[in-house]
Amino acid sequence: MVAPVTTAAGGGRQASPRRKGNDRGPSSGSVLAWLVVVPFLAYVGTFLVYPTALVLAGAFQDADGAFTLANLAALTRGAYLQAFLRSVQLSAITALLGAVLGALLSWGVAVGKPDGLVRRVVVAGAGVLAQFGGVPLAFAFLATVGFQGFVTRFLRDSFGVDLFATGAWLFELPGLTLVYTFFQIPLMVIVFLPALDGLRPQWREAVDGLGGSAWTYWRHVGGPILLPAFLGAVLLLFANAFSAYATAAALVSQGSPIVPLQIRGFLTGEVLLGQENLGKALGLGMVVVVAVAMGLYAVLQRRFARWQR
């Protein structure tokens, strides 16, 4: 991907003959016009495209840099396969939970006042929890249902219920599911609220006027229109949970149940010599899963956009 940068900068091929007395700055074909975008392309090439290419290429190389498929083959076995399956399971469950509950919350917000306080608070709060939570969310749940958490203590002192009777679930997959749902619902609000806002009140009025019930409206009008947006949001949520790292890293310090934590192991040196590129193969696996989910999301978004014109 560094190649297009050089061809772009040297794109004098298309240079049109300069107009005489042109003081309006460089025209679109001249080398000068291309120079303006060079800093951006150079920066993105260095800090985005190059590291990405390094991971993707490394997945196909052995310790000496020779081509191999052994890294990818290792992903289909044992602990790595387990980690992928657990990651997919965690992402799918929290995507569905987040999508359903988030859609309900979006509806609750959408039928209210467009500039009301409820909407402002929910939207701002959703932005915080969905995109900037990370480590603070892990600590929020430690304070709530950790060993000495608020709810844990309350249940123990008032009802004699021991939340940890079945083991340290908060630091394993069930705990991750709970905490992930906590940031998936807000993300659903962010992506689904605009879709709900796109429903025209006239459609509802038309159904009411023709004697339809709320059920008729959602079954035959609102539901079908929103379905692509909803499914798209499920995919986006799936990709979001699949790529999340910070919350899990802060919560799980022992073992690596999911793929991002497996990659952490490779970066912090808990691996055998000569297997460094396995971490890159795990990275490639994550990129493929996320890219498929995001690609389908883009397709569904375009389908839905038809109704928003």
């Binding site: 985005l48 190059y50 590291p51 290419a53 390094l54 490394g58 790292y245 890159k280 990275g283 990129v287």
Partner: peptide, 21 residues
């Protein structure tokens, strides 16, 4: 495309490539 690319590349993957950089 370049600006939206980071959406499809998880930070945990990007950091693998950024470590040598």
């Amino acid at each position: 495309f370049l600006c939206l690319l980071p959406v499809a590349i998880p930070a945990i993957v990007l950091v693998v490539g950024m470590a040598p950089l």
